[in-house]
Simulated assay, not measured.
Amino acid sequence: IRSMEQDMAALMESAGLFEVSIPDFKQLKQCRKELKMLKALWDYVIIVRSSIDDWKTTPWKAINVEQMDLDCKKFAKDIRAFDKEMRAWDVYIGLENVVKNMLTSLRAVTELQNPAIRTRHWQQLMVATKVKFVMDESTTLADLLNLNLHNYEDEVRNIVDKSVKEMSMEKVLKELDTTWATMEFEHEKHPRTGITIIKTSEELIETLED
């Protein structure tokens, strides 16, 4: 293209000398414009991919979803700011989808960071996504992204909701166990039958009401 542009410049200069009209080389100018746009787009692809590749190495417990989410939203905003002519390009569409999927996956990761999540819930997630991995200290964001979480947002939400309810139930059962384990019962004989029965105390009634 540079060679053709040099030829164009020479022709235009010669035409000016001889006062001859020549075409305005619209196609060549459009080609140069698109090349500049394409370079800008690919440069941004590299920025986004580099950031995500760096995030992928982050250990599970150190994932800063909030910051990653902010960065992804900035990526999305910058992508939308590109020339509208780019929006039909495969590279543009691919980059936009990468960022969208990452945002969706990060929402799922946020859900999965809930302390109510237990080993059994990770196993349920593996069944739902049909991807197996070992959940331990060495687990990274890359392992979670391999689950294609952006395709299983509803499943993740259901599993997390279930885990929260289970955790709440476990808490109630533990409190009941603690309460009744220390509860001392008094006995008395039934005045008519003489059978030993539990004496109803005010503390017992309050506990049962609670």
Rank of each mutant, 00 (worst) to 15 (best):
Met4Gly: 06
Gln6Gly: 13
Gln6Ala: 15
Met8Tyr: 04
Met8Leu: 08
Ala10Pro: 03
Ser14Tyr: 09
Ala15Leu: 02
Phe18Ser: 05
Ser21Gln: 09
Ile22Gln: 04
Pro23Thr: 05
Asp24Cys: 04
Phe25Met: 09
Cys31Lys: 14
Leu35Arg: 14
Met37Gly: 02
Asp43Thr: 14
Ile47Val: 15
Arg49Tyr: 02
Arg49Lys: 09
Ile52Thr: 10
Asp53His: 08
Thr57His: 07
Glu66Pro: 03
Met68Ala: 09
Met68Gly: 11
Leu70Trp: 07
Cys72Ser: 10
Lys74Cys: 09
Phe75Ile: 05
Lys77Ala: 07
Arg80Phe: 06
Phe82Arg: 07
Phe82Gln: 09
Lys84Met: 08
Glu85Asn: 12
Met86Ala: 13
Arg87Cys: 14
Tyr92His: 11
Gly94Cys: 08
Leu95His: 02
Asn97Cys: 14
Val99Gln: 03
Met102Cys: 13
Leu103Pro: 03
Thr104Lys: 06
Ser105Cys: 05
Val109Lys: 00
Glu111Leu: 14
Pro115Asn: 10
Thr119Gln: 10
Gln123Met: 01
Val127Gly: 00
Thr129Val: 12
Val131Ser: 03
Ala142Met: 07
Asn146Trp: 01
Leu147Met: 10
Leu147Val: 06
Tyr152Val: 06
Val156Pro: 01
Val160Gln: 00
Asp161Ser: 04
Ser163Trp: 00
Lys171Asn: 14
Lys171Ser: 15
Leu173Thr: 15
Asp177Ala: 12
Thr178Gln: 13
Thr178Leu: 13
Met183Asn: 08
Glu184Ala: 12
Glu188Ser: 04
Pro191Ala: 04
Arg192Leu: 13
Thr193Pro: 04
Gly194Tyr: 06
Ile195Asn: 05
Ile195Arg: 08
Ser201Met: 10
Glu202Ile: 12
Glu203Gly: 06
Glu203Asn: 09
Ile205Val: 15
Ile205Gln: 12
